[in-house]
Design a protein around this nucleic acid. Sequence first.
DNA 1: AAAAGTCGGTATCCTAGGTTACAAAAAGAA
DNA 2: TTCTTTTTGTAACCTAGGATACCGACTTTT
Lengths: 230, 230
Amino acid sequence: MLNEHIEAIVKSTLFKGIDKKELGLVMNCLCPRVSDYRKNEHIVLTGDSFIGLGLVLQGEATVIKENSAGKRIMMTILKQGDLFGEMIAFSHYSDWLASVQAQSDCTVMYLPKEKIISQCEHSCPWHRKLIENMLAILSEKALQLNKKVEYLTMKSIREKICTFLLDQYKMTGRATFMLPMNRNELADFLNVSRPSLSREMCKLRDEGVIDFHLATVRILDVKTLQTCLE
Amino acid sequence: MLNEHIEAIVKSTLFKGIDKKELGLVMNCLCPRVSDYRKNEHIVLTGDSFIGLGLVLQGEATVIKENSAGKRIMMTILKQGDLFGEMIAFSHYSDWLASVQAQSDCTVMYLPKEKIISQCEHSCPWHRKLIENMLAILSEKALQLNKKVEYLTMKSIREKICTFLLDQYKMTGRATFMLPMNRNELADFLNVSRPSLSREMCKLRDEGVIDFHLATVRILDVKTLQTCLE
DNA sequence: AAAAGTCGGTATCCTAGGTTACAAAAAGAA
DNA sequence: TTCTTTTTGTAACCTAGGATACCGACTTTT
């Protein structure tokens, strides 16, 4: 089983930094359950009891969350090497909070949470690495959600845009940079409508604060950009 | 140092489930740095290099985040037993992302992250518990942020209210329940203005979907409440 | 019990931004 | 190139909900 799926395992953040040669031992110790699913089949269902952290070895799947009224909303697309269930694995929940459905024929590996934190008799060095990776995965997840909350909490589109552009400015260190997504995706990320986003960006251009052409943006007046956030 | 601060340590989620008698050994192994701060003094500053997970042993402090324009926003109030820096400790960041300021005279303990994940020579049983707690803390944090994102993403106040009420209904299992916060806090949580929240709640009452008096709410028509979310 | 402070409901007014629809530009395919 | 598709910008229209202000009901203080 290992050889045919080694690619997915190596790709995943959970096994990052663990030597390829060691993976045999690791898997032997973790003895994960592996299951196959056909296209459109449900991999897990909301409310099913949680059996372990999921890792997509093969194929593509979607995470679907049902709201209080039962409406289904697609949350994420999972590809080879992606994890799911990482937020509930070590929480007080014992059931899945969302469903996962196969978009193509899929192979999924389940890692029981006890196996991840338990120190096996030999107290293998990679075990520590596994725990470290798990902590890093959860931390990054929380930070990413935190960032999202920050954007969603802003009241005006202008504030969202200015913050986003200043973030990009800081990250790239240049006044001229490329936006990492198209208008639709950006509007989605900021939780506003695409035309409203365009309208506001054009206003900023008319005011001489920024200039842009498609994905290329140049910040002309950092100070004014900052005053939008005060 | 242990005896005078045992209360805070026992209170904290990080040391939950570790026997009081063992705490001496635990602290001996973790050998945390402890620092005192005076009222209004900065405990950590955004950009300072991260030295370890913070635990408030005594006093009260506030977490203050600066946005891209440098505007300072109060994020949380930390009390005895509260942790800070748990999201960055195991992330790729090596600097603090927010500042912490003492609101009263404070004592703070710093736990280096290596000490938390390292297995000491004696491979103490409580070490595993510590890791488990750390994973639980991060998971719950991520889940809580996830919930917040869900609420913030909804476009209409009505949808937010209906979701909130259905959540409460599910949690309590009763059609009549008490709201866990007052109108101001609820408006804040849902990221809307208080009068708008009142207005919409009254509309729902006028339509016969719910009834309420102050904090007491009764759901009259679950189905209609659910259709708001579709 | 009078005074002061808090909390929730209500009315008015107004604007930011959603919706829809279309046109222009860019990118890709044939 | 030319045709098609996708991505943007723009304009017109309209409403959800923010801001503000005020009132009445309760609470707490003195």
